[in-house]
Design a protein around this nucleic acid. Structure first.
Ligand SMILES: [Zn+2]
Length: 266
DNA sequence: CGAGTTTGACCGGCGC
DNA sequence: GCGCCGGTCAAACTCG
């Protein structure tokens, strides 16, 4: 009797936990997919946007606020030797110095320690197609180990066809039913707009950062917003238009937040 | 067994 | 010419 009830309650509680975890899992998966697609889209769009932004003052790498922000930051390196785009990605501590799955497949061919940076620099080469001249250098930032600086060089001469589609959105248990990420197929590849200047993209991923930065000391957002609102707004709007369905993003974020709130990490 | 990573050797540019 | 330094090669090694 009582034992029955107790067991039943326990089972229900466990099931609820399981459901919540499933939701969280699904949400994270979707976020990953969205991030990947956004990244790809931003990369291709950035190539042509860069032409418009030519000759813009160089912003220094400021400590962006620790929110979910994507911001762009260009360095004018004045050398137009070849199209090298520099992406400045902030990740968590252990991330993608190992083979980054950013839509392409990279083969590591070297690693060196540089003079004034304790962290080594890794050299990658695109191995998706034979004869693809794209190379990539990845190195952590000096102080902030959570920031990766990836320097892409060259352009892919093949379609970024990822052979293995590892996203199976079949599981659809949560309330939010048909969420389809309609991402505009950024302009077709053949018309590459060669960017004569390096691009620096500062992707400040959201995330429950464990950043040790001066909390409460100085509120960084004011500074950063002031320094860069122009581009930031553009990019924000741009990203929003990319997903084309703001509601989706918002609801997704809300769902994730809810899940996280329900299960606060210790 | 093959594809990819590791890691020390090697090489070319540059400053002295 | 020599040594430093960033970039690449390739043999050994690891992993699935
Ligand atoms: Zn490629």
């Amino acid at each position: 009797m009582d034992a029955h009830r107790s067991n039943k309650e326990k089972a229900e509680a466990l099931q609820e936990d399981l459901e919540c975890m499933r939701k969280e899992n699904e949400s994270l998966r979707f976020m990953l997919e969205v991030m990947t697609r956004k990244c790809n889209i931003i990369e291709s769009h950035l190539r042509q946007r860069n032409l418009e932004y030519m000759g813009i003052d160089l912003n220094h790498q400021f400590e962006a606020n620790k929110r979910a922000r994507t911001s762009i930051n260009e360095f004018s390196l004045a050398t137009n030797k070849s199209q090298t785009s520099q992406f400045l990605v902030r990740t968590n501590s252990k991330d993608s110095t190992l083979v980054v799955k950013d839509g392409y497949q990279w083969r590591k061919y070297g690693q060196k320690v540089t003079k004034d940076n304790p962290s080594p620099r890794a050299y990658f080469r695109c191995s998706m197609a034979p004869g693809c001249p794209v190379k990539k250098k990845v190195q952590r930032s000096k102080d902030d180990k959570s920031v990766l600086i990836a320097t892409y060089e060259g352009q892919h001469n093949h379609d970024s066809h990822d052979s293995h589609a590892h996203f199976s959105p079949s599981i659809n248990t949560s309330a939010k039913g048909a969420e389809h990420i309609n991402f505009v197929p950024a302009e077709s590849t053949p018309t590459f707009t060669p960017s004569p200047q390096p691009i620096t993209l500062d992707l400040t991923l959201s995330g429950s950062n464990n950043q040790e930065n001066s909390s409460g000391g100085l509120d960084g957002n004011s500074v950063s917003d002031r320094g860069f609102n122009g581009k930031y707004n553009k990019i924000e709007d741009f990203v929003a238009s990319l997903t084309k369905d703001k509601n989706f993003t918002v609801s997704l974020a809300a769902a994730v937040a809810r899940c996280v709130t329900n299960q606060p990490k210790p």
